[in-house]
Design a protein around this nucleic acid. Structure first.
Length: 259
DNA sequence: ATGGCAGGGGAGCCCTGA
């Protein structure tokens, strides 16, 4: 089973690129972020025509996440628990039923800039709620993964110019500490585990020729519980999609599981 | 972080993102 995460930066602008990627790489599951659409506005028909069911958790203008699946989904839950007042659409989960049932969590973690400030406080608070949900997933002892745009550069080797990001919300020490507190509960980060070399990126800014200069950062991650990590046979980053026509500023990251 | 950005909303330009 191939499971991918992809921040598409707007479904309306990205539909042709998304359809090309689905057709060419054939993921069984795609966890999408930044759909920037309400549920009713999501162009589900053309995606369904490729054999996917579509579950969205959208909002107007910004944010929004979705799950595309070629296998049956059950128990879809929208929204990260822990704050009834949080109206931002950044979390969706479901169980995919193949040979093995796997709990899938798609997330769009807040950017947090400028830091410090209220947006940064929201990011750190959101990560606290993510940690609470992560503890539950581990306790359930069923294979589970949390994949998406974490807006976290875990280590200096995950940025072409780490020094330039030192005070940024994506790389500040408090952000990385919060990341490690989740990771070290017992998760395996797929790319780090299998491709530990520096210089692998999942995002390049649209500005200043960042992609041409390979001035990237790695901020899209797949975290797996032990029961899920045991199923992984491969993972990679579809970096070449950043060079396509009208690309997202992110590229897909995927894992292959025996499931 | 920037060399010259992109998307959405909505109708002139501001907000947001990374």
């Amino acid at each position: 089973m191939k499971i991918a995460t992809y921040n598409i930066n707007g479904i309306k602008a990205r539909l042709p690129a998304l359809l090309d990627w689905l057709t060419e790489t054939q993921p069984d599951i795609a966890l999408l972020q930044e759909i920037k659409s309400v549920d009713e506005g999501f162009p589900r028909e053309q995606i369904e025509d490729l054999g996917y069911s579509v579950e969205t958790h959208g909002q107007k203008g910004f944010n929004g996440v979705a799950i595309l699946s070629r296998l049956p989904l059950e128990d879809v839950v929208r929204g990260l628990p822990g704050d009834e007042t949080d109206e931002q659409a950044r979390w969706i989960e479901a169980t995919v039923v193949g040979e093995t049932a796997i709990r899938l969590c798609g997330l769009y973690l807040p950017n947090g800039n400028p830091a410090p400030g209220p947006k940064y406080d929201y990011k750190l608070a959101w990560m606290q709620r993510l940690k609470a949900r992560a503890i539950e997933l581990l306790a359930d002892e069923m294979p589970a993964l949390m994949a998406g745009d974490y807006n976290i550069i875990p280590q200096p080797e995950d940025a072409a110019r780490a020094d330039a990001w030192r005070e940024d919300a994506l790389f500040r020490m408090e952000s990385r500490t919060a990341w490690r507190r989740i990771l070290h509960l017992g998760f395996t980060e797929a790319i780090r585990a299998r491709h530990p070399q520096p210089g692998l990126y999942s995002f390049w800014d649209y500005q200043a020729g960042a992609y041409d200069r390979n001035d990237g950062i790695r901020i899209d991650h797949v975290l797996m519980t032990p029961q899920c990590a045991d199923l992984m046979t491969a993972c990679d980053i579809d970096a070449e999609y950043r060079a396509r026509d009208k690309p997202s500023d992110h590229v897909p990251v995927w894992v292959e599981l025996v499931a």
